[in-house]
Design a protein around this nucleic acid. Structure first.
Lengths: 142, 142
DNA sequence: CTTGACTTTGTACTTGGGTACACGGTTCAT
DNA sequence: ATGAACCGTGTACCCAAGTACAAAGTCAAG
């Protein structure tokens, strides 16, 4: 399939595909005699994976790592294991954080028929508590 | 407290505080006679809340809404409730997605002593399945 | 009353992740 | 064999979320 069909199937802009190619997230596809990109069907899955991982809050750099893992990882299995394990820990933390936020919002909604004065929200407080030990993970950029 | 102290306490760049003020996330603080910003202690909480919500994948625009909610919301409680509920649904979806990814990675690690050829990962597949109904939420930018 | 640390404003730059545009080549149905 | 519809490259632009820098004002300690 050609660029715009892949773009349509994966719900991205055709330009974005070139951008991903430049970034190395998509390998250079074979070309038609006239120089047009011709993608294999599997490319749709790959692009959808990228978009989805992004929605989950991963940067493209992280998606790159994820894709490597998804493909069986580097030759050295220790390395793959280490990377995957690191990601798992990160995911656990993020899931927990989201759950805190979710329950805060849920409680807010539950107390919602009170008059505004008594409606003071638990979110701010809880989030702040959670952040007590957040200083340790320095290398973050999201 | 003044700008750089708040910045230090909340672990952000002093410039970022001015930026948040411009964005309306921080209300304009009172000024010392000489024109220096003087923040109340509560500002630390607020800035930490912003940073934390960001880590969880909210944009500053969304954080703005969240802050409104956390403060008792708009006069119309129905509106607050609707916003919070929407967020909760979003959170639930993201938590589920992260869990899928996590279990995929966990399984990958488990099968890690196999030679690379047999190590083909379930993540790509599973995430893709989850994305079947993803086209519906259009207004996303992350 | 000066020196050094801190603050102000304004403006410009950066990074990540795209998107748009111009200009030209390719396909293919008619 | 030609025109619409597509594709390619290069370059420029956009937005979010900052970050940096310059020029000038403030303040406290010595």
């Amino acid at each position: 399939m050609r660029t715009s069909e892949l773009a349509a199937q994966a719900a991205v802009n055709p330009q974005t595909l070139r951008y991903y190619e430049r970034r190395g997230l998509l390998s250079e596809p074979v070309r038609s005699p006239g120089g047009f990109r011709v993608y294999p069907d599997a490319a749709v899955q790959r692009v959808r994976f990228i978009k989805r991982a992004q929605e989950l809050g991963f940067t493209l750099a992280e998606v790159d790592v994820l894709l490597d893992l998804a493909e069986g990882g580097p030759d050295s299995c220790e390395k793959a294991q280490a990377l995957a394990t690191e990601k798992i820990i990160d995911l656990r933390r993020r899931i927990a954080d989201l759950e805190v936020l979710q329950s805060g919002l849920t409680r807010l909604v539950a107390t919602c028929e009170l008059p505004q004065a008594q409606r003071e929200c638990p979110i701010l407080h809880e989030l702040d508590q959670g952040s007590a030990k957040t200083g340790e993970m320095q290398g973050e950029r999201r």
